[in-house]
Design a protein around this nucleic acid. Structure first.
Lengths: 157, 157
DNA sequence: TGCATACCGTACCGGAGTGGTACTGTTTCG
DNA sequence: CGAAACAGTACCACTCCGGTACGGTATGCA
């Protein structure tokens, strides 16, 4: 199942809504109503976005959530990470809480090299789209630089 | 859960193995042994790849699967489509067997525009990597062309 | 000082998909 | 005929997703 969860989907929608109404306070009910989504779902993702310090929360009567800042500095990658949690396209690179690799044959695994590349390609694509792009309704088109082969993959990301 | 299934993972490995031994016949047992994977799993993905006409099968004693052809003409996107089935990053664009959209509020949905863009970006990235790249262990890096905004999204893919 | 509003946290449940196993054909070669 | 290997199907434990429910806490207002 290669797709983002609905929760993440809702989260992106909510982020776009708040970014479009920059500075204004909107309740979960208002956002849920606008997109015709269940309110409890929207409150969940709004809480997540708040915990990741993407948006601000204001409790009590007249409260709600608000986005303040520059939408261009928030990447899609960061949003997905906040909503989906740490993720990898393949388990090769995933580590548990002790930092141990999830894949037992990791070191000897013949696939790790190109899997790593794919993983990084997708993550890289997400890093190049900002919340501002989403707000404006940009249609990005991915392109891949092939020349970078056999580079030392272990170094970053 | 933004990741490819293990079955797809295995399938890519098997495809790479066969592409590296271009023309040679290899049994499921042999491939499974090489990657230390359960044999029944490998047979499953090999069958799928055969049904998608990526590889050839040969039954009976001494039989197995083989890849014959140009690895550069087989895209990663095609492989994933063969292994994962038709997929979309978001349900916006998914349709059932009658061709009806899975998303009820599709037409009025404010998110469809940029979701479509993300969807296409990821698929586009996969289309630009070939089986040959995987075989050589290429590490592709994705890049997104932003200028192409607000283009008519409905037209293709 | 209540009370309504709205965020916060947690727990729970049905359904779907994943990962894996088992078993029974069917084809081919020696 | 029998072993090797593909083909097809059924099954199951497990996890996660999508959604609901409920109680708690903070805030503003009458």
């Amino acid at each position: 199942m290669l797709k983002i969860s609905k929760l993440t989907d809702y989260g992106l929608l909510a982020a776009v809504y708040l970014a479009r109404h920059n500075g204004e306070v909107a309740s979960a009910r208002e956002i849920a109503g606008f997109y015709h989504l269940p309110v409890p779902m929207v409150t969940k993702v709004l809480k997540m976005l708040h915990q990741s310090e993407v948006i601000e929360s204001q409790r009590g009567v007249g409260g709600g959530y608000s986005f303040r800042g520059d939408a261009e500095t928030v990447t899609l990658g960061y949003l997905i990470e906040a909503l989906e949690g740490p993720w990898d396209l393949v388990e090769c690179e995933t580590t548990d809480d002790q930092g141990h690799a999830a894949c037992a044959i990791r070191v000897a695994c013949p696939s790790r090299r190109f899997m790593f590349g794919i993983n990084r390609a997708v993550k890289g694509a997400f890093e190049q789209v900002t919340l501002g792009d989403l707000t404006r309704g940009v249609m990005p088109v991915a392109q891949i630089d092939k020349p970078m082969l056999s580079m030392r993959a272990e170094s970053q990301l």
